[in-house]
Design a protein around this nucleic acid. Structure first.
Lengths: 110, 110
DNA sequence: ATCATTTATCGTAATATTGCAATATTATAA
DNA sequence: TTATAATATTGCAATATTACGATAAATGAT
């Protein structure tokens, strides 16, 4: 096989998984942190910040965009990228919900 | 290639990415939600909850365990699994940090 | 010791991801 | 138009992931 059986899971579960998967690569974590470190959008120097070739960076940006984590808009020759607050707040809520509920329960095994 | 160039990124970035990647599959999101929905550990019925074969579920549990997201302990014939609050709070802090910082900045492109 | 139960591992097939060179596309400038 | 700059796409090789049948390992019960 090799393909996930997404049809067996809820839309919410698939959405969380898709976004987490998009962040599941150190280059893409680095992109998020970089976009967060500067004010608003970044127009055209993400490639220089990462230790990867331009096509590879372009591919990583595409995946983040497909998952809705970042947004991009054409600005002349360059493209401006920025974080998508909506997507990130969904993830934030998901993990906040988990940690809050863990703490209200008995401590665990292991 | 096919292998991530983890050596070019920080330990923190690799750690966040590894944990996010582990959650980046709907079956593993479902496992997290199930472990959260019951009190403390779950001993031995995770397979019945998921629409996947037993070896597949075992593999998913292994990946969550390798990433530190869950913990497991042997309890007779069964194995008890539970969430690892430490790992999940790292992710929670990561996304909380992002969403807090987004909101203090100008709204973005796209 | 034998059996039943539960979980893990092995082997394998299908598919996806990662990375980059080469090339194409798009937009601005001269 | 031609050149320049920035980003995207294509094509490909190496590797990883997903899924499951078959089988193994470990524990408890009879």
């Amino acid at each position: 096989m090799g393909a996930s059986k997404t049809e067996h899971f809820s839309d919410k579960q698939n959405q969380i998984a898709a976004m987490a998967k998009a962040i599941g690569h150190p280059a893409r974590v680095a992109i998020l942190e970089y976009l967060l470190s500067v004010d608003t959008c970044i127009c055209g120097d993400i490639v220089n910040v990462l230790p990867l070739a331009q096509p590879t960076v372009s591919q990583h940006l595409k995946e983040l965009k497909n998952a809705g984590i970042i947004k991009g808009s054409i600005e002349g020759t360059a493209i401006c990228y920025c974080l998508n607050p909506d997507a990130l707040s969904v993830l934030e809520a998901f993990f906040a919900h988990i940690t809050i509920n863990i703490n209200t329960k008995k401590t665990n095994c292991g």
